[in-house]
Amino acid sequence: FAKGGRLFYIGAGTSGRLGILDASEIPPTFGMPHERVVGLIAGGDTAIRKAVENAEDATQQAWVDLMMYDINDTDVVVGIAASGSTPYVIGGLEDAKKNGILTAAITNNPGAPIAKIADIPIEINVGPEFLTGSTRMKSGTSQKLVLNMISTALMIKIGRVKGNKMVNMQLSNDKLVDRGTRYIMEGLDIDYTEAAALLKKHGSVKLAIDAGKQ
Rank of each mutant, 00 (worst) to 15 (best):
I190G: 10
L145K: 12
R6Y: 07
I90Q: 14
K201Q: 15
P28A: 07
L145R: 10
M155W: 02
S139L: 03
G111Y: 13
V126E: 12
M137D: 05
V78I: 15
K165Y: 00
A47I: 00
L93E: 03
D57I: 01
R179N: 01
K144P: 09
L131F: 13
F1Q: 08
V126S: 13
I10R: 13
P28W: 10
L66E: 04
G159F: 00
S85H: 12
S142K: 10
R136H: 12
I101V: 12
V161G: 13
R182H: 15
D22K: 06
E35V: 04
V89R: 11
G159Q: 08
M32H: 06
V37I: 13
G163E: 15
K50I: 13
E186Y: 03
P128A: 05
M169V: 07
E123S: 12
T135V: 15
Y88D: 02
I117Y: 00
R160W: 01
A96V: 09
G19A: 12
F8G: 02
I156G: 08
N108D: 11
A2S: 14
P110V: 00
G16A: 14
M67L: 15
K162R: 13
A47Q: 00
H34D: 14
R182F: 00
A81H: 06
N72T: 06
E123P: 01
K200P: 02
L18S: 04
K157P: 00
A118P: 00
G39W: 06
K157L: 11
S134Y: 11
I26P: 00
L171R: 01
H202S: 03
F1T: 09
P110R: 08
D178G: 01
K157S: 15
V177C: 05
D210Q: 14
R6E: 03
R49K: 11
I117E: 05
V89C: 12
G163S: 12
T193Q: 14
I158R: 12
L188K: 09
N168Y: 09
V177L: 14
S83A: 14
P121Q: 03
R17E: 06
G13I: 06
L176T: 01
L171P: 04
R49E: 07
N168A: 11
D65I: 02
Q60E: 15
V167F: 02
P113A: 07
M166T: 01
V205C: 09
V64T: 14
S134E: 10
T74K: 15
A58N: 14
E25T: 08
K157R: 15
T86I: 04
G43Y: 05
D119A: 10
A51T: 09
G19D: 13
Y183I: 05
P121D: 07
E123Q: 15
L199E: 04
V205L: 05
